[in-house]
Amino acid sequence: MGIDLGQRAPDFDLPAHDGERHVLADGDAPATVVYWTCNHCPYALAWHDRMLDVARDYADRGVRVLGINSNNAETHPGDSFEAMGERVESDGGWPHPYLHDESQEVASAWGAERTPDLYVLDSDLRLRYRGAPDADYEDPAEGAHWLRDALDAVLDGREPERAETEPVGCTIKWK
């Protein structure tokens, strides 16, 4: 499965690290970023601060950001629900919810492959960008500019010039 550009994203209802549930279809954000991440993948960790910066920088424009961990915690206990909460707490909080997709059904429905794997949705929850945050996980100066470019376009009512890039990272750890 998976979603194509322009297609409405499948809805989900997932618990966050703090126990609250989040439904994709709730709310009226002008743009939504959904991205797969986890606790142990070095690529996800390398891009982590850039993703949090995007969430902070676009909050005042109403952008909603949701991180999802779908990894199999049985084989990767560092990605358990408990470990997610501990990580957010040790970070002093995140500017966005960290959701747990224990069944992996959401990752499967969306066709998510890696951590990180980003999806930018417009106000109708239709896919406008899918891929990596930027061109180089090793260079913080890249600043997740592919993601920012896509968000700027969606917020301006334009199509992103770069609508798809190759997700780079560890594969999701399937059951």
Partner: peptide, 9 residues
């Protein structure tokens, strides 16, 4: 933990 994962350096 040991296991099949990417290493973090």
């Amino acid at each position: 933990p040991t296991g099949l994962a990417c290493r973090v350096y």
